[in-house]
Design a binder for these strands. Structure first.
Lengths: 302, 302
DNA sequence: TTCGCAATTTTGTTCTGGACAAACATCCTG
DNA sequence: CAGGATGTTTGTCCAGAACAAAATTGCGAA
């Protein structure tokens, strides 16, 4: 197990920090400070890539790069392990313990046990409560664990993958028939998270809507085409917390401009909380809001 | 429905062409030629973005940018519609017709009918033959249709999403028990295609392997951690045809360097065909090769 | 002719260093 | 203590040059 080195493109891929950012940080803060190869191009040792990942994670939980990059690695590790968890209300303690139990299965890398436990909950609670009371809080739970560094990236991936399978399976087993309205579900390029979309799909499908799941990462102009081809009543997008907030309003405006006025545009997920209003776009702060929006849509049609 | 305009970041997102490429093309070939906003920054009209998408597609099917960008849009459209399909052998005609029928359902945007038809084939053929004789050729079929422009992006997305659901459902219904070897399945960052991975997972699971599906886009160093945590015998990666070929060898070398020697590294998918050998990495040109590799692994252990 | 190798063109990526606006923090005043 | 003005931080964009890897062409030998 050597310590390989990465060129700037590889670092961009692995950390999500753009080449421009990597270069400007080097200029301003003196980190990262890669070596150079024969052609004068940057060569990053694995160790610096690791530190960049740590910095990125701390930035996602609210820290500012200027401070972080001036801090020695040891202190960063301390910061990373601090848990700023607000104490839960006593009534939630039971629920929280159950969620912890599920997360523990993932962290033991026992996928089979996790799937079995979740399947049990699904049967016990029914799909609607399963989504609202298990999957949604669990996702938040895992998100929090990620921020405080108590879960590895690959563990989070395993969690996501297995949970996606459960939801898709549940959705597939719903009866189908004549359904309304038609909802196209997707996300914009660079937004790869799909769990929120699947949760919404499950709830919408339960309420009798016809869902067209297009997966993630649709170019804007293609979303408009898809809406036309599927005669959609609603286009529903999902933005995760990780998506750069500053880009969202412009994106929604652009999409709104290419969609026919008759098609409603909904945007949900953690990324749209505390976002300024965008004309002609419904911002859904939670799954409950999504269901309310569906009901409101139906009332307006009738 | 206005014609919105895009800044350079939005164009990068929507076309997959990097900012650097967009700028250098402008300088060299005079296209794209965006306007400028108040601050002197590029503003691309939707029409130019569309043309860029067309150019990108033609490049993916072997054309060269220098020629394409010197060609007027009308001629490009002609090029795009040309179908360089080699005529099929007569014996394959039936099979091809069946596949065409399945694709036709997608192009009618009738997801339900597609799912039903595929479900039938799954039951009729059994999972192994379903993967090898239906899903794999169908995927190639859709890929070809994409190259010749006879399928829309959102149709391809719908196909992928629905097919993923079928495969995952089928995999979930397999019995579990004590299994060997343990195979971690994933893809590298920037490689979002998962269908190939799912096909491999289905076949491996049928052969009694223990599969750990981590989804797509794992940073290299995380793949190594995951392999350790799951005590993996094999790490299997998938590269689609769309993945930039030139990057693959370096990626595999880097990953090979961080993985323990005892862990085998397999790479499959359309992207690894006609690729130079990489030391310590098994390149799997097809699903059949994957099964052969599994058998060979078992022989070596025994 | 056809094959293989060398020369040349094409093309994507990287470099430097400057600029600026939007987001964020801080300070001052009512 | 609220709220607006001022200052700082930070990501993105720009220009133009340089260069290596890939693809194509040209050339000479089998």
């Amino acid at each position: 197990m050597n310590t390989p080195s990465f060129n700037i493109a590889a670092v961009e891929r692995d950390t999500g920090l753009s080449k421009d950012v990597l270069r400007v940080w080097e200029r301003r803060y003196g980190f990262p400070l890669p070596g150079r190869d024969d052609h004068g191009e940057r060569v990053y040792p694995a160790e610096q890539v690791e530190r960049l990942r740590l910095v990125k994670r701390l930035m996602d939980s609210g820290h500012r790069p200027g401070k972080l990059l001036a801090t020695p690695t040891e202190e960063l590790n301390v910061l990373a392990q601090r848990r700023p968890q607000p104490p839960r209300a006593a009534s939630d303690a039971d629920a929280a313990a159950e969620l912890d139990g599920l997360v523990a299965l993932i962290k033991q890398h026992d996928g089979a046990a996790y799937q079995q436990a979740m399947q049990q909950r699904l049967v016990r609670q029914g799909l609607e409560r399963f989504v609202q009371d298990t999957v949604a809080p669990l996702t938040r739970h895992v998100g929090a664990a990620w921020e405080e560094g108590s879960i590895e990236v690959f563990e989070e991936h395993l969690f996501t993958e297995l949970t996606k399978r459960l939801l898709r399976q549940a959705i597939a087993s719903l009866p189908d028939g004549k359904r309304c309205p038609r909802i196209v579900l997707t996300s914009v390029p660079d937004e790869a998270h799909v769990l929120g979309l699947l949760m919404a799909e499950a709830l919408f499908a339960l309420e009798g809507a016809e869902c067209v799941p297009l997966g993630a990462q649709m170019p804007l102009l293609e979303i408009a085409r898809a809406a036309a081809a599927h005669r959609a009543d609603i286009v529903a997008l999902s933005f995760s917390l990780a998506f750069p907030k500053r880009q969202i309003p412009a994106l929604l405006q652009q999409l709104r401009a290419v969609l026919p006025t008759a098609v409603a545009l909904w945007a949900g997920g953690g990324g749209v909380k505390r976002l300024p209003e965008v004309a002609g776009v419904e911002l859904l702060a939670s799954l409950e809001h999504s269901l309310a929006a569906l009901e409101a849509w139906r009332r307006k049609q009738a």
